[in-house]
Amino acid sequence: MSIEKIILHKLNMRLKFAFQTSFGAIQNKEFFIVEAVDAHGNSGFGESVAFTSPWYTEETTSTNEHVMKEFLIPLLRENKIEHPDNITDIFKPIKRNNMAKAAIEGAIWDLYAKQQDLTLTEVFGGKKTNIDVGISLGIQPTVTDLLEDINDYIKQGFKRVKLKIKPGWDIEILREVRNRFPDTPIMADANSAYTLKDIDHLKKLDDLGLLMIEQPLAHDDVVDHAKLQRELATPICLDESIHSYDDARHAIELGSCKIINVKIGRVGGLTEAKRIHNLCLEKNIPVWCGGMLEAGVGRAHNIALTTLEGFTLPGDTAGSSRYWEKDIIKPEVMVENGTINVPPKNGIGFEIDRDALKTFSIGQWEYEV
């Protein structure tokens, strides 16, 4: 496939609200839109998902910028690309930095789909025409605020509710939620806030009928999670621990989890995400697509990924208006009664709003490939 240049658009967008997790609050989102352009003027788009601080992984917006400019883009110049699947091997000499890799790889996947006159879903092998989505709620000022939010989103038809928890904001809160919403699929996301010393405390989750608890222990662990899963009836879902196909394989073999959250940026791109999906499908491990407070381009990639058959649990890809006053795509991602219709247009299925891209831009760099 032909790629003539890579354009890095650095954006700063402000969320409608501060999203609170166990590791901090996020409201201003600084990130990159990567544009891959061919000789015919076709453009493909990818989005970086790292935050400005290394809360979630070691990557940040600044490290993404450095790695893309100094290492990944030069590697594209030095290698022939037959297919987007080649990008994983081309970038292999650069250790980790998965979010930087995924941003560029995503743009190339989108460009490839457009060159083939196909949707990203079609070239990726997805079959669904719509996907189910849930809602992710941060830690709220009060339980009353939380219950009101949950009620609002259930009325809107979201298929499940994910609640952030941490020590001091967990069992009692979840119990109140369960009492108010006895039949709602509910999961808890701990973002590594606990240790094995909390086993007896976490076992209280088993009385609440949760869909899962996500990443209760250390961000890089699979061994202790296996010990915890043996003690819990509640399924453990791994998130931060899974950066690759091999991480997923090790976790499954050890019995560290019963569910895996697949995030494109965290695992290094769509190619690796599909490999993990295929493994989990073979091993009967349900998967779902997690969110990273993406703008429209990242959401579009998440939608395409979720069309694969193994994504049987609702993901975090809510509509654009949930997070942004204005998104950078046209039309914006819309949720109706807890589902998103997969767009039929080629590539990611959405057009870039160039005016919005310019409005939110804080820098732009262009590189010949």
Results as ranks from 00 to 15, higher is better:
Ser2Thr: 11
Glu4Thr: 11
Lys5Trp: 00
Ile7Gln: 07
Asn12Thr: 10
Ala18Trp: 02
Gln20Tyr: 05
Gly24Val: 05
Gly24Lys: 10
Ile26His: 12
Gln27Asn: 06
Glu30Ser: 10
Glu30Leu: 06
Glu35His: 02
Glu35Pro: 02
Ala36Gly: 10
Val37Tyr: 04
Ala39Ile: 09
His40Ala: 12
Gly46Asn: 08
Ala50Cys: 06
Pro54Cys: 04
Pro54Phe: 00
Tyr56Thr: 00
Asn64Tyr: 06
Glu65Pro: 04
His66Tyr: 14
Met68Ile: 15
Met68Leu: 15
Lys69Asp: 00
Glu70Gln: 15
Leu72Gln: 06
Pro74Val: 00
Ile81Cys: 08
Ile81Pro: 01
Glu82Gly: 14
Pro84Glu: 02
Asn86Leu: 04
Asp89Lys: 15
Ile94Ala: 07
Asn98Val: 01
Ala107His: 09
Leu111Ile: 00
Thr119Trp: 02
Leu120Gln: 07
Glu122Ile: 03
Val123Trp: 09
Gly126Tyr: 03
Lys127Leu: 08
Asn130Leu: 01
Asp132Phe: 07
Gly134Gln: 05
Leu137Lys: 09
Ile139Gly: 03
Pro141Thr: 05
Pro141Cys: 10
Glu148Phe: 03
Ile150Tyr: 11
Asn151Pro: 01
Phe158Tyr: 15
Lys162Tyr: 00
Leu163Gly: 06
Lys164Pro: 03
Ile165Ala: 11
Pro167Ala: 08
Glu176Gln: 15
Pro182Asn: 10
Thr184Lys: 05
Pro185Ile: 03
Ile186Asp: 03
Ile186Gly: 07
Ala188Asn: 02
Ala190Asp: 01
Leu208Tyr: 03
Gly209Tyr: 02
Leu211Ser: 13
Ile213Tyr: 06
Glu214Gly: 11
Gln215Phe: 04
Gln215Met: 11
Pro216Val: 01
Asp220Val: 01
Asp221Ala: 06
Asp221Lys: 12
Gln229Ile: 01
Glu231Lys: 15
Glu231Asn: 14
Glu240Tyr: 09
Ser241Leu: 08
Ala248Thr: 02
His250Ile: 13
Glu253Val: 07
Gly255His: 09
Lys263Pro: 00
Thr271Ala: 13
Glu272Pro: 10
Arg275Pro: 01
Arg275Ala: 10
Leu279Pro: 13
Glu282His: 15
Glu282Gln: 15
Asn284Ile: 00
Met292Asn: 11
Leu293Lys: 07
Glu294Asn: 08
Glu294Met: 11
Ala295Ser: 14
Ala295Phe: 03
His301Pro: 01
Glu309Ile: 04
Thr312Val: 09
Thr312Ser: 13
Pro314Trp: 01
Gly315Lys: 02
Asp316Leu: 09
Ala318Asn: 06
Gly319Pro: 04
Tyr323Arg: 14
Trp324Gly: 05
Trp324Leu: 04
Lys330Tyr: 06
Glu332Asn: 14
Val333Thr: 05
Met334Trp: 07
Asn337Asp: 14
Gly338Pro: 11
Pro344Ala: 13
Asn346Gly: 11
Ile348Ser: 12
Leu357Ile: 10
Tyr367Met: 10
Val369Asp: 00
